[in-house]
């Protein structure tokens, strides 16, 4: 066990966990930020995507000890009241089915549009193909990203 500093959604925390614990489980079990989901634990589905220093990372394979004090943003911290243009576009396009993969999808998309405000279909394919959706909402995710890009 170690005392690990964490800066999640603008809040400083210090957590007592073993430092090899993946960030995902610290977010979910220790901080109660359950919007970030577990899907595979091996970096193969994207359900656990959060931002570290503004970049999309898979929190299931990132040991919390390697995070240091760098800023983490989870779906709960993406906007103050679900009003990020992507969250709004997700509602406008009625993307969600079971919704389980969607926080990870939105975090991946948010990192994409932050860097590339008007992504092409090929850009979307490149940025989003690591985020699986078993319910099959890809077509609507693509539309929602284009819609948000138009509105930003």
């Amino acid at each position: 066990m170690a005392t690990v500093p964490l800066n999640a959604n603008g809040q400083a925390h210090s957590v007592e966990v073993s430092s090899d614990t993946p960030l995902l489980w610290v977010l979910r079990d220790t901080l109660g930020l359950t919007g970030t989901k577990y899907g595979c634990g091996i970096g193969a589905c994207g359900a656990c995507t959060v931002h570290l220093d503004g970049n999309a990372v898979r929190s299931c394979t990132l040991p919390v000890g390697q995070v240091g004090g760098r800023p983490i943003t989870t779906i709960e911290g993406l906007s103050t009241d679900g009003d990020h243009p992507l969250q709004q576009a997700w509602l406008a396009e009625n993307v969600s089915q079971c919704g389980y993969c969607q926080p990870g999808q939105i975090m991946a998309a948010a990192a994409l549009v932050a860097e590339n405000p008007n992504p092409s279909d090929a850009d979307i394919d490149a940025a989003m193909s690591g985020n699986l959706c078993r319910c099959g909402t890809y077509q609507r995710i693509r539309r929602a990203i284009h819609r948000a890009a138009q509105e930003v």
């Binding site: 979910r28 359950t34 919007g35 970030t36 709960e76 679900g82 993307v95 919704g99």
Partner: peptide, 23 residues
């Protein structure tokens, strides 16, 4: 009429409670 899913606003905010989120 095309009514949006009732639970969608919580889903996109990460606040919808799935079985794995129950505590």
């Amino acid at each position: 009429t095309p009514v949006p899913l009732y639970d969608a606003p919580q889903m996109v905010k990460g606040s919808a409670i799935y079985g794995s989120d129950v505590s």
